[in-house]
């Protein structure tokens, strides 16, 4: 029995489209330990959102799981029935979306929406409206919201973007959860607001000892919020390492290129960028999906798909450059 909150093994997910079957996730492996804060970093279209949506089974209609398994606290998520799923979503995992304007219903007050979340959480006494209100107020106070009573009576449009996102955090953590998934929660916010929202998110999950999966395209956000980082490229986790270690040394050529592309506050110019485009998922390269853009690609990269290699304690990289079994490098 593993002690992880969630484990994903060799997950393959595709989408049915006009052109055929697009193979997005190409064998994703991931684990999150209790209380651990993990981020998935990758560029647009790499499959980070698909990965976390699979955990909650909220994938789009066209999505097809073609292989692999997701284990949440020892249970197979992909085999759950309706009531088990409801239990998972109601009490196990909660999700914070990128755009709180669309995830909050515009015709209900914040109070009504928070009560609904609490009601379905199965929390003791959660069916009483008084307890619901108390819990909602407490949750809002904990996210440093001024005047929670007034906020409960407000409609989403009456709040600013930053406030709405804090409401989403409060809502996600209003009752105890095993894990919170935050999908680019600060992408639409100003930097000073982003800083506040991330600090509150981090503080809240730490206090409650909740696990966190943070999806972001910004390595900076990942570094300042989470303990361990997954770098994702074209449907694969190419590298994972504890945050400090990852920034000390990157092994995968993609991670290295990605880190180089980030303009530094300390100056030094901007790197060239990564040539080429992400592969066409209809017909992805058979071997390593980064091979066509990789400066160090060799024959084997075009034929086989690289598996994780340990390059340090909990530092793994999916790249043949570090695969001892062949003796190259």
């Amino acid at each position: 029995m593993d002690e992880n909150i969630v484990t994903i093994k060799d997950l393959h997910i595709g989408y049915r489209t006009f052109g055929g079957h697009v193979k997005v996730l190409n064998g994703v492996n991931l684990y999150v330990k209790p209380g651990e804060k993990v981020s998935i970093v990758g560029e647009t279209g790499c499959g980070k959102t698909t990965t976390v949506k699979a955990i909650l089974r909220i994938l789009a209609r066209q999505a097809v799981v073609t292989g692999g398994e997701i284990i949440f606290k020892g249970e197979q998520v992909l085999k759950m029935n309706k009531s088990q799923l409801q239990h998972l979503r109601g009490t196990g995992v909660s999700m914070i979306f990128q755009d709180p304007t669309s995830s909050l219903n515009p015709v209900f007050t914040i109070g009504q929406q928070m009560s609904a979340v609490i009601r379905y959480s199965g929390h003791a006494g959660a069916t009483k409206s008084k307890i619901q209100e108390e819990l909602a107020i407490k949750a809002l106070q904990e996210t440093a919201m001024p005047d929670p009573e007034r906020i409960l009576q407000s409609y989403p449009f009456q709040l600013s973007g930053g406030m709405r996102q804090r409401v989403s955090i409060a809502m996600a953590l209003s009752t105890p959860r095993e894990m919170v998934i935050a999908d680019e929660p600060t992408t639409n916010l100003d930097v000073t607001i982003q800083d506040q929202v991330l600090r509150i998110l981090k503080q809240r999950v730490e206090e409650k000892n909740t696990s966190l999966i943070l999806i972001t395209h910004s390595l900076g956000v990942a570094r300042e919020t989470t303990d361990r980082i997954y770098v994702m490229y074209a449907g694969n986790m190419v590298e994972t390492a504890p945050t400090t270690e990852l920034f000390r040394e990157q092994y995968h050529p993609y991670t290295r290129a990605l880190v180089d592309c980030i303009p530094r506050l300390s100056g030094g110019g901007v790197a060239e960028g990564i040539g080429g485009r992400i592969p066409n998922y209809l017909d992805p390269p058979p071997g390593c999906r980064f091979a066509p853009r990789c400066p160090k690609a060799f024959d084997r990269c075009w034929q086989e798909k690289p598996e994780y290699v340990n390059v340090g304690s909990s530092h793994q990289v999916a790249c043949f450059l570090y695969d001892q079994s062949t003796g190259d490098e």
Binding site: V191, T192, D195, Q196, S218, G220, F247, R264, L265, S266
Partner: peptide, 28 residues
């Protein structure tokens, strides 16, 4: 200074640029 403090960075060298950390608060 507040804006500089709020920027998520990826290296120690950059942290030094944020010499006076002013914790962002409030909204515009």
């Amino acid at each position: 200074k507040m804006l500089l403090s709020a920027i998520p960075v990826i290296s120690e060298k950059e942290e030094e640029v944020k010499h006076a950390k002013v914790t962002p608060k409030g909204e515009i």
